[in-house]
Design a protein around this nucleic acid. Structure first.
Lengths: 206, 206
DNA sequence: GCCAAATTCAAACGAGGGTTTGAAAAAAGG
DNA sequence: CCTTTTTTCAAACCCTCGTTTGAATTTGGC
């Protein structure tokens, strides 16, 4: 693991993860990556077989970081009452609003993919989207036990959407003209508001 | 208006609007635009002072198309009961799911801007975002008359978010593994579901 | 019909992108 | 230690991009 070549590989991964999260795939040049990682330009092709290969690795790593956290909490969430489970889910989604970069970087990378999915991403998505949406659908189904599959799916998307809009527009909401304060306490309040609205909305169908 | 030079200008605008909507700013080359418009490459610099200038014009046109439709309906929406107003708002937002390109093209252009706002867009946004969010906030305030400004703003974003997630992911939702049917009838159903959930959610605070 | 202005055109420019190359350096194995 | 393999390196290659150029053509007012 500490072989010299692995050190180079690791430096590239760290730099690439930061830059891809910050600027997205297109606006990140391999020259910028190697400058930040302080390695030779050809090293990316040597270790990752090109920019696409590097991005694939970064995406995989981001997927792991996200779903790992998600599934580890999934079990305890399922043990809660449906209301508290949904509230916890919302809070978990909204954690992307925090500036703690270790957590938000994977989220930001996926945000780029929301609008322009790269080919690399589509490939990964088909394998990994199931557990990602599965938890949401599971929670929803406890509010709408009689609903058909289509409605459950739509409701799950609906739930994810009302959280994601805040995460995706974080920077814009923080600035004028909205100027929303988004510290830890404010996010907690927001999570309560959103989960309250969502629970009441779904409750009408119970 | 039918001067020869205006014809060239118009052909460029049409082609650019289509391509920007389809691929976004970065992935649309002026060579692709002039090929589709069947004009000379230098014409873009002559008529629009470069790619940025052309994009600015396309954005302006898209803004006009969207807010014009929005504000024209805003008046009649405000005359409705709060529940019907919200339902109408949701239906209006979800019209982006339709494949009728005259309507969806401006929406798609703005979708690109959601994740990576261009400098051109930021400039326009500061002038025009107010009426865009104003209607949402107005409807919301009828459900939460006692709420503070911050809560109203958050609720407006929340409302827009739960509509936008469907529009933004339309193509992905239509394909596997979701494979959601999204014809006119299905969208109508979806609008009813979403507005029903939203109304019930906000109703809890009334 | 003429002339000045506006418009079109083909070609080239320069910057920036990802990738390739082939030799030099370092690491690993016997 | 010597050999073989792995890894690094600077340089160049080739492509696409937005823009510029300067001449040719068309347009519009007199």
């Amino acid at each position: 693991m500490t072989r010299p070549s692995d050190i180079t590989r690791d430096r590239i991964m760290r730099a690439a993860e930061r830059l891809f999260a910050e600027r997205g795939y297109d606006h990140t040049s391999i020259r910028a990556i190697v400058a930040k990682a302080r390695v030779n330009q050809a090293a990316i092709n040597y270790h990752f077989d090109g920019k696409d290969g590097l991005y694939r690795e970064v995406l995989r790593s981001a997927f792991r970081a996200l779903t790992e956290g998600q599934t580890s909490h999934a079990a305890e969430i399922k043990a809660l009452s449906r209301e508290r489970a949904l509230a916890e889910f919302v809070r978990y989604q909204l954690r992307g609003l925090l500036q703690r970069d270790e957590l938000t970087r994977p989220i930001r990378i996926f945000n780029w993919e929301t609008v322009r999915p790269t080919a690399v991403f589509r490939e990964l998505l088909s394998q990994e989207v199931a557990p990602f949406m599965g938890l949401a659908t599971d929670i929803i189904s406890r509010f709408m036990p009689a609903a058909d599959q289509r409605t459950l799916t739509l409701a799950a998307i609906w739930l994810v959407g009302q959280c994601g809009v805040f995460v995706r527009n974080r920077e814009r909401l923080a600035g004028p003209p909205m100027s929303l304060q988004l510290d830890e306490a404010a996010i907690e309040q927001l999570a309560e508001l959103v989960s309250g609205w969502a629970i009441a909305g779904l409750g009408s169908h119970a």
